[in-house]
Design a protein around this nucleic acid. Sequence first.
DNA 1: GGATGTGAACCGATTCACAGCC
DNA 2: GGCTGTGAATCGGTTCACATCC
Lengths: 262, 262
Amino acid sequence: MTSRQNRRDRSDRGIPEATVARLPVYLRALTGLQERGVATVSSEELAAAAGVNSAKLRKDLSHLGSYGTRGVGYEVEYLVYQISRELGLTQDWVVAIIGVGNLGRALAGYGGFASRGFRVAALLDADESIVGEEIGGMTVRHIDRLEDVIADHGVSIAVIATPAAAAQGLCDRVVASGVTSVLNFAPVVLQVPDGVDVRKVDLSIELQILAFHEQRKAGGPDEYGPRPGQDAGHYVETVRRDARPGNGNGMTRAAEFTESAT
Amino acid sequence: MTSRQNRRDRSDRGIPEATVARLPVYLRALTGLQERGVATVSSEELAAAAGVNSAKLRKDLSHLGSYGTRGVGYEVEYLVYQISRELGLTQDWVVAIIGVGNLGRALAGYGGFASRGFRVAALLDADESIVGEEIGGMTVRHIDRLEDVIADHGVSIAVIATPAAAAQGLCDRVVASGVTSVLNFAPVVLQVPDGVDVRKVDLSIELQILAFHEQRKAGGPDEYGPRPGQDAGHYVETVRRDARPGNGNGMTRAAEFTESAT
DNA sequence: GGATGTGAACCGATTCACAGCC
DNA sequence: GGCTGTGAATCGGTTCACATCC
């Protein structure tokens, strides 16, 4: 504060990315406590509820400011507000959902959006048989209207929930319309200009990561684990063709164009 | 340094977590190339397709072994196979989807699963009006049958796509039935014993992270950045109540129990 | 020549451990 | 006495830059 070298005031702009990614988790834990009428919480308790350790929690919160009380803990309501403000949830964000398949519908009906300042203002799809349908009090518009809709509603975040093949083209269009934040559910790596943020949620990638770890469990952590015996550090080329892919289990089946859940 | 016995073979079991998380992305990029008939790819090209830089890609792949050819690049088909094997995708994984709302349906119909060795063997829900319904050639079973279904099909990965309130209880049940990998879409932090892996996909957290960055863009990086006006670094108690949450924009609205998209 | 594979330098994030304050 | 806030140590991951090999 006044005494020490500031310029890194609190409310510092440099919140680490890893911290930002956890703030929503803390916020959720806090609103849970709030609903149960808890007024004050220690870093230990909150950390447990959020699934992290307390040192990390304290460090994270320290990036926002000094909002706790030594010997006591954090005031729940106050911390909810501070985190909300930091994340930008005290203002409304206008969201458009592009692609109204099962996933798009799930997103449209998701209670967690509205309650956190996200207002879904438009649903768009290319499928004529869906256009006009009412979902959650909203009418599905045709994708041709994308640019109008973005401009009219002041959309600032686009959610892409289309098949992979359509995603990049639609992304280009929303970016051209001035949207700088995109949440992508389609299984493609979207290319965007600098200044545009893309976050990706990929259902099958998460499963693959689980499979990796699951595979290692089978046989016990140290059984098959360190892989004893053979193969101590030689990646000899002559061994390469021993087992061929692409036939037995369909790994080469075309997957990219049918994946998304629209 | 060498205090603990250090077995650093190739085909080392110690693939960094960050690398594991990217392997599915590389795999997807590679299968895309494969479908376009590309036989060989350089780290530069593959990195671009996967949205990472080439040094990182090479380092990542080096953890699997030495599968490239200097001066040439990587053979696509071979690399697809090696990554698949490393991730455990050359075997089949039996998946149960718990919660058959919009999200569960989206997941059930997701082509990206089957094509990568994930076999959805069961759909379960508590809602009697859904039980018995046919979805993607599968009949929805009642959640009471959970334990039977897991045992009968040898389920090894459970996907939880239920409302938040139901998630922990169901998680406990699948874990008790021997499942050690859980993919959680419900907006709660699941508590599980050691040895069980949980991965979480949270739709609203991703949006919140985008909102954070979007907020900072408005006004330019250093313009509005430090957020002038009120609250320049004093966490004085008397100021604390100046702006109240939880009325204007619904921050305190109960959110935890209605969020998931089921 | 041209690409991979990899030590070494670097950087950010996590954890430790304790000073500071209630 | 108890709990926060934070320097210092540590760890893991990224990037650099170049030796290595086809």
